[in-house]
């Protein structure tokens, strides 16, 4: 009895965005999203290499055009997972867990890039590759959170069973995001305070701010392009698993009468 009621309820909740509809819409959007991100990244790269050198940092300021967007994307990727985690826990949306699984490796890659390019910028400017200050440490913790979420998802065979613990872990880790953002204000850090997203407006000269913003838009579009590709693949992966299960059940069912004889 409950088996017949549950699918009907699920359908009413997911009628607006079921996986099949998502595959259809995203298939149409993907080429445009990919093309747009490629064009904006090419323009951003051109602007990054034609922007003036900093009067103190010289040409090493060009590292900023990949480091800062990567750092923003590392946090945005986590917020995409946090919103998806709410989708899993509150609405039990079938695409929410798919979204978390798709976003985690991409977010981890951007976090790794933020750490690595930051290190490559730190050595010539600070004289050290790494310090355990609040900003660097909290971003390192974010990287570990990503790895933990990826590990938990892959440790469980059934993605439906893994969805809730993964969503809870994602939400617990969300506390780190404001810590990363405000670490440079709350503690005395070697890392500089915010220069773009601040109450009194950006403190960077427009000649450097524009390439940075264009690169950030390009990186953001690239993130969503990759996220969408990964979500589609994950939907197919789950379809394959359910088809294999159904096929195994059918074969077992067909084998039973023979065994009874």
């Amino acid at each position: 009895m409950s088996d017949t009621i549950a699918p009907a309820r699920r359908f009413s909740l997911t009628a607006l965005a079921n996986p099949t509809r998502f595959l259809s819409y995203s298939g149409k959007i993907l080429p445009w999203l990919g093309g747009l991100s490629a064009i904006i990244l090419i323009v951003g790269l051109y602007m990054s290499f034609t922007a003036p050198a900093d009067y103190q940092q010289g040409i090493t300021v060009r590292i900023m055009y990949v480091h800062v967007p990567a750092a923003w994307l590392s946090m945005m990727g986590y917020m995409v997972m946090a919103v998806s985690a709410l989708g899993t826990l509150i609405w039990r949306h079938p695409l929410a867990d798919v979204s978390i699984k798709a976003a985690a490796p991409i977010g981890a890659a951007f976090t790794f890039l933020a750490l690595a390019t930051g290190s490559l910028w730190g050595k010539p400017m600070w004289g050290t590759w790494w310090v355990w200050d609040a900003r660097l440490t909290s971003v390192f913790v974010l990287f570990l959170m990503y790895l933990g979420i990826i590990a938990l998802q892959r440790a469980m065979d059934d993605p439906v069973k893994a969805a809730r613990p993964v969503a809870i872990l994602v939400l617990v880790g969300t506390v780190n995001i404001p810590i990363i953002k405000f670490s440079v204000n709350w503690w005395n850090t070697l890392h500089q305070p915010a220069a773009v997203i601040r109450m009194d407006g950006p403190t960077i000269d427009p000649s450097m701010l524009w390439p940075l913003l264009v690169m950030a838009v390009g990186f953001t579009l690239l993130f969503f392009f990759m996220h969408m590709v990964a979500m589609r693949t994950e939907i197919w992966r789950r379809r394959i698993a359910s088809m294999r299960r159904a096929s195994a059940r059918e074969q077992r069912g067909a084998a039973k009468p023979v065994l009874a004889e």
């Binding site: 060009r62 990949v66 480091h67 490559l120």
Partner: peptide, 14 residues
Amino acid sequence: MTHAQYVFVSYTLT
């Protein structure tokens, strides 16, 4: 390493 090399490695790694 020169400053140009730090920039080059950053973009290549990305």
